[in-house]
Design a protein around this nucleic acid. Structure first.
Length: 155
DNA sequence: GCCAACGTTGGC
DNA sequence: GCCAACGTTGGC
């Protein structure tokens, strides 16, 4: 079992959007970064826990929780010339990009703002902070617990 | 809206 | 295989 943090711009796809999806589940398409892809392809397992992070918000914040409900499979948007995520180099017979299914768990009553995360010495090594632009990052168990404490949420 | 960080591309 | 140019992310 692993812990992850996954970023989404709330104007594009928020945690409320996820909660309103059929079965509260959507596929996490459009990842076009190799490190993030490798996390999905090589490490993510069904049942992994996810911090749902709102990037480009004011301030950016951890908004709630989700979980991984599929292993990685081909990101079909890479094959669609009309998609903004189209990648002609992704061969359907050997897909370059993958996605996973993510299911809503709950929204935090008190989201955890990025400035608070930065100010917390226990979180100084969080991948969120050390790999600023990575859209999927790993979270340690200690960090997972700490974020929940800051949100006033049960584990 | 700016711009720093940084990953990717492509010429050589 | 180097590295400059370029594009994107995402905080501010």
């Amino acid at each position: 079992m692993n812990y992850w943090l996954m970023k989404s711009e709330p104007d594009v796809f928020s945690i409320d959007d996820l909660a309103n999806c059929s079965n509260k589940t959507d596929h996490w398409d459009g990842i076009r970064n190799y490190m993030a892809r490798n996390f999905m392809r090589d490490s993510m397992q069904v049942g992994d826990e996810v911090l749902f992070y709102h990037s480009n918000a004011k301030p950016p914040h951890v908004a709630g929780r989700a979980k991984i409900t599929s292993t990685a499979y081909a990101d079909h948007t890479a094959f669609d010339p009309n998609s903004k995520y189209y990648d002609p180099k992704s061969d359907p017979n050997s897909p370059r990009w993958v996605m996973v299914d993510v299911t809503f768990v709950r929204k935090f009553k008190n989201s955890v703002p990025l400035p608070d995360i930065k100010a917390n010495p226990k979180l100084s090594k969080m991948m969120l902070l050390t790999h600023g632009r990575l859209s999927i990052s790993k979270v340690t168990e200690d960090e997972w617990i700490e974020i929940h404490q800051m949100a006033g949420e049960k584990i």
